[in-house]
């Protein structure tokens, strides 16, 4: 069994300590880990789901622009980071578990360790303005 790269492991250790939602994905977008604040967004617990294929977890969000139009995947920060291996940032709207729409900002950055190998990406979600937490 191949272990995770050290930079992925350290990313998880950091995410475990943060109060903002953090998602860690592999180069294909499969969800490797999400922290407790992120569990509130997904409505699932990492201990229950473990890792999730990209096809499963990416459909949990319905990202929209301000006018309510669905956003194509290539406009999402994490998708940009995965395709370009560069940091990306963006704001959009998602529907929360209680059915309310919230504006969020997402900052994504690639994980490229000392081996110079692209091993995945981290996405940090921020709630915009004074909205209640999702």
């Amino acid at each position: 069994m191949a272990g995770s790269e050290i930079e992925i492991i350290l990313s998880r250790q950091l995410a475990d300590c943060l109060s903002v939602p953090v998602f860690i994905v592999d180069p294909k977008g499969n969800l490797l880990f999400y922290n407790e604040p992120a569990e509130e967004i997904l409505g699932k617990k990492y201990e229950d789901t473990g890792e999730m294929p990209v096809s499963e977890w990416s459909t949990m969000f319905t990202p929209k622009d301000k006018e309510g139009n669905l956003l194509p995947p290539e406009q999402l920060p994490l998708v940009k980071t995965l395709s370009q291996q560069k940091p990306a940032h963006g704001s959009f709207w998602i529907k929360s578990l209680n059915g309310q729409d919230y504006e969020i900002s997402v900052t994504a950055y690639p994980i490229i360790g000392r081996s110079k190998v692209f091993t995945g990406a981290v996405a940090i979600f921020w709630m915009n303005s004074d909205q209640d937490e999702v």
Binding site: M1, A2, G3, S4, I6, I9, R12, G50
Partner: peptide, 12 residues
């Protein structure tokens, strides 16, 4: 340590 071996530094 994390429960899953792949998340443990140095495990492999």
């Amino acid at each position: 340590l994390y429960n899953k071996d792949k998340w443990v530094s140095g495990f492999s």
